[in-house]
Write a protein that binds this DNA or RNA. Structure first.
Lengths: 234, 234
DNA sequence: GCTTGTGAAACGTTTCACAGCA
DNA sequence: TGCTGTGAAACGTTTCACAAGC
């Protein structure tokens, strides 16, 4: 053939048997965990791994892991397993984190500031580009380092989303303010929301939304601890 | 009958058709969200609600909500719905959060400090009683107010767990230190762990463990945003 | 009328088990 | 031999649909 294919690797990657929206959500969730584990293996200079090995460290079955990966293509080598660096590249490409995503935080309380300065996000391909609050005492304060972030007033939200091509917004405001922040983000064209506020958010149909209910996790633990206790008493 | 039953209400509450360990985990998870919504309704002075109303605000089906509650007994009034205050009491009793749970935090970075001083936990029945770090520069520092918490060295973990009857531990240390913190907590008799570290933890069989992988939630959003985009292009 | 509680059906996910290949 | 990829079976969860009750 005369003309080269474009240098993007994705065109050479194998068959995408399922469309992204057909992949079960739990499988996508585990994909992130596989990636984290693989990144750990790479640090230890492991060249290859297998579904069996991954399954044991992560607490799944080997069939589960092979099935999950099969939603996205064929990445393994029968008799060998998976090449660690290769699989990392492919999962990053699948998740879309081989490119950087600009993210902002609304709510500069303790949690908001902690998330805005959290290094782990940067390493995973997410860059916090702004943090907002509506408390005049906080606006103008500078937090973090490399980069330093200035706390901005919430009324500049739309402007920043547009100018800095922000696709994801993190909400860390009190529960009763969360819906209006959501509405402002949606109106400004945000593409997805990560919610830490103690409230159920209404978003347009199909808008990606993930909620982390901190107290809920503790309540789950409390229930399960009591369940174990009472099961043990029988 | 001559002798009064003890004043605990639970003995008068209705049939527990399923044992706690038979209840599907997703149902327990939603129970916490129902509780949160009900607490909101109570603040607005709503006396009663229905599975239909709850379903609409939370984005579930009404059948789902009735089925979930049915795992724990019969709480509704046909033709009327559910009494808000009554259902709140019962869900709190089911989750075990009608009593206070002592909790500690290991890792006094930004996130650990934010969680240790988070007011929402207190309101839900969880009291943070200690925070630990192994950085000499942090040990002895005081954080928060009412109560003030002094950052303690990690080697006092076991002592505090025993003395203060701590049942739940929150881990907010870097990923590569998380397993050894886990082991120390387990050895000291912790009953459940909430993990924010970027690592998969090995715990004894059946030990309640909940993990919040912050980067994973962003990766999920990234994937779903891309999926929407590519679906829209077709 | 309206709403709950629940068996049965529908749906989705996980596990099994094995063909195919290095 | 060892490991992947995958149809089929097993399992679990959600939704449906309706009897019973206010």
């Amino acid at each position: 053939m005369a003309t080269e294919q474009p240098p993007r690797k994705d065109s050479s990657w194998p068959k995408p048997r399922y469309r992204p929206e057909e992949v079960p959500a739990p499988a996508v969730g585990r994909l992130s965990l596989y990636l984290r584990e693989l990144e750990g293996l790479l640090k230890q200079d492991c060249q290859t791994t297998s579904s069996k090995e991954l399954a044991e460290t992560l607490g799944y079955t080997d069939a589960q892991i092979r099935k999950d990966l099969a939603y996205f293509g064929q990445f393994g080598h029968p008799g060998i397993g998976y090449r660690v660096d290769e699989l990392i590249d492919r999962i990053r490409w699948i998740l879309g984190t081989d490119r950087t995503w600009n993210v902002l935080v609304v709510g500069a309380g303790n949690l908001g500031q902690a998330l805005a300065t959290y290094r782990g996000f940067q390493r995973k391909g997410f860059r916090i580009v702004a943090i907002f609050d509506n408390d005049p005492a906080k606006i103008g304060q500078r937090i973090g380092s490399t980069p330093v972030l200035e706390i901005l007033p919430v009324d500049r939200l739309a402007e920043i989303i547009t100018e800095r091509s922000v696709r994801i917004g993190i909400i860390t405001v009190p529960g009763d303010a969360a819906q209006q922040v959501t509405d402002a983000m949606v109106a400004a064209g945000i593409k997805g929301i990560l919610n830490f506020a103690a409230a159920s958010l209404a978003v347009p149909d199909n808008m990606p939304l993930a909620s982390v209910a901190l107290a809920v996790h503790l309540e789950q633990l409390a229930f399960r601890i009591n369940a174990r206790q009472s099961a043990h008493e029988r």
